[in-house]
Every structure is written in C-alpha cells, then in structure tokens.
Design a protein around this nucleic acid. Structure first.
Lengths: 194, 194
DNA sequence: TGTACATCAGTGAACGCGCGTTCACTGATGTAC
DNA sequence: TGTACATCAGTGAACGCGCGTTCACTGATGTAC
C-alpha cells in the first residue's frame, strides 16, 4: 500500500544508516541486502523502491560515512585543541572497538580500491577535502601543512587498521599509543573517565 | 588417477602461490576456490585433496604472505641502508600498483579483523615478529625502538592503503611522498631508473 | 621379479544454500474532475 | 466537497546464478606377498 511521504523519507534514512554501520562492521560482502532491510525493520522486497541496486546503496554509504568523518574535524574551534582532540579520539580504544560508528577509510579503503571508477571518485574527493581541512586546521603554521596532514592521516589509518586486526590487547594498545606519541597526544589512560 | 608425490607437492605449492596472490589482489570474498584451482591449472574437484576448506587455504595464505613480508626486512645488512631500502620499496608506486605481490597487512588486515581466533592469532604473531625485527634492525640506537617501529609501520600501512584507494595519481603520489619525507626517505623520482 | 590389490590426486556432474533481483499483488495516499 | 482513478512503498514468493563442498569414477603409482 501507499505510505505518507515523510514516512518514506524516514525509512530511506534508516536503511542508509543501518547499511552504513553494517558495511563498516562486516564489509560490503559480509552484509546482504536482506540483512540491511531487516535491520531497518522492513523486508528485502521493498529495497528497489529506495535504491537501484546494492552497488548504489554502497555508493551512498561511502559518501555518507566520509562526510561524517569530515564533520568530525569541526567539533572544536581552537586550533591546537582541535588537533589533539581529533587525533586522541581517532587513536582511542573506543574507536578501535566501534568500527560501525568509526572511520570508513580504515574499514573500507581496501575494498574501495578494488571497486571501479565512481566509488573511488567519491572516496578520493572526500579524502582530498579531509587532507585540505586537516592541513589548514591542524598544521596552520607549518611550511608544508599538506604533507603533515597526509603523513598524520596515514599514521591514523594504519594504526587503527593494525590495532583492529591484532588479537593481543597489549600489543594493540601499544600500537595506538606509539602513534599517539608520534602525533603529540598523551597515551590513553588505563581506565578512561567515561 | 594417482600421481607421483613430487608432482603433488609441486601442485600444492602452486595452488598456495596462486591463492596468495589472488586473495591479496581481490580479497577473500573476491576469489572463488574454482578461480584458484583454474589459475593453478586444475579443476575445482581436486581442491579437497590439498586443503580441508577455503578457510584453511586462507589461513595458509595469510601465514605465507606474512612470512614473505618478514623475509623482506633481511634483504640488506647494513642497518641504515636496510631501513631506507625497506621503507623506500614499501612506499613505492610499484608496491602500490602490485598488491598481488605486496604486503598482506595492507590488503587484508580489515578482512582479517573480521575473522575469528585462529586467523587473527597467526596475523598477530607475525606482526609482533615484524615489529620486533623492525625495531632492532631499523632503530637500534633509539631509546624506545619498538615505539618507532610501530609508528613507522602504521604510517607505511596507512599510506599504501590510502594511495591504493585513491583515484587521483597526483594525490596518490603526494601521500606516498609525504610518508617518505616523514620517514627520512627521498621522494620517488618521476621516472625511476628501472 | 611378478602379480594382485590398495591408494589417492585427479575429473566433471551434482548438492544445497544464500545471494541480488524481479514480480504479482495490496491498499492507503495523492490527484483529476 | 465527493467520487473515480492513478500512484507506489510495502509483502512474500520466485527467478537465475555462483558459491563451497561432495561424490562416483578413473587409472597410474605404491605396497604386500
């Protein structure tokens, strides 16, 4: 039957949100369209009314997740605090343990690298924007702030990637703290304030 | 029919080699058992004679690829050269463009993070060994050489991950060169000597 | 050294299963007059 | 304002397809005597 348009928009939103989280947690191939629709409280048959294909859904999710990421660099205004806060949040055990709410670059970049044109284009645009923003906000006084931003971003992505794959809590924390140290952020305390 | 044992060993080896390369290029889900067997010059029906399951094959591939990685740190003896050579090779466009022969951490870590116990255990052991080796060989005079090794490894993995997913050759090279700069390696020349 | 039999890596057909996608159908909402 | 009809997001069954795995069968190799 037909539904009021605001209901439809709301459901479209909740499909996108569920998919965005599930893809980050389980990868593109680890989540079926039926899984996503079920998680959004619907059946798989309603899917084509919202997205043309799974590929289109993935595209929308990557774009959304990357823009969430960009938005996070705006949380704090003071330049020095902004950097420390951003790096500290990124290199936290909380971020490591919550891929579904975390950075899409870490969880999905290798899969995106294997996808074709359009997907990589959207990813590229957003990474470029993030590097620009990080350079301007986090390293405003440096000669080549872009270089600093790119090196820092690489370390963030690599550290979380390794920390997540590793099975040893001590080594995993050591890696996060090594990256924190090199980026000028204090080590994470054993029991965070919460 | 039955085959001479040395033939069987040779074929087992070529299955493993083909799989190891294909998984790195296309991911675990992007390669079927039939694909691997075909690439090794056999039909899929012969698979169970070599590996109990696809999961077991993946396990063997991860172990093999990680140990290749470890072996690469041994190529040069002089400590300073070893570090520069290793970092330079890792952060090269050649490595970026050859995932099938490259570092398994970059291509497979996010997928490994989603796998269960045994797989992550093997990965962890090998990453730990790599960090130890890098610390001892590459940063022998530093106070906390483990930290340096972990931070450097994070940057290597993150830089290649991003450089591969990005669709823009200029930005991709910029990222590799930013990481090179921060690790004390000269930028890659436009047209390498070959 | 021969002979009879067991072994086992191959082949190719077949298995069940989950996937993305399609489709006939439903019925409240929106639109035309 | 009412009435007739079009619209379209839902449901659940069904589609073809590729996957990992299994299996009857083959025949050269290895083993027992």
């Amino acid at each position: 039957m037909r539904y009021p348009p605001e209901e439809t928009i709301k459901r479209h939103e909740s499909i996108l949100k569920a998919a965005s989280q599930m893809f980050r947690e389980h990868g593109f191939d680890g989540v079926s369209v039926a899984d996503v629709m079920k998680s959004a409280g619907l059946t798989h048959g309603a899917f084509p009314a919202h997205f043309a294909s799974k590929e289109e859904l993935i595209l929308a999710c990557v774009e959304r997740a990357m823009q969430e990421m960009l938005a996070r660099t705006d949380r704090t205004f003071n330049s020095e605090n902004a950097k420390t806060t951003f790096f500290s949040n990124y290199l936290s055990t909380q971020h490591r343990d919550s891929p579904q709410r975390g950075c899409a670059m870490t969880t999905l970049a290798p899969e995106i690298a294997r996808k074709s044109g359009k997907m990589r284009g959207i990813f590229t645009e957003n990474v470029a924007a993030l590097i620009d923003k990080m350079g301007r906000k986090f390293f405003p006084r440096r000669r080549n702030s872009r270089n600093d931003a790119m090196a820092a971003l690489s370390m963030l992505v690599g550290a979380i990637t390794l920390a997540r794959a590793i099975d040893d809590e001590t080594l995993s924390r050591e890696i996060l703290n090594a990256a924190r140290l090199h980026l000028g952020v204090a080590p994470e305390t054993e029991s965070p304030e919460k």
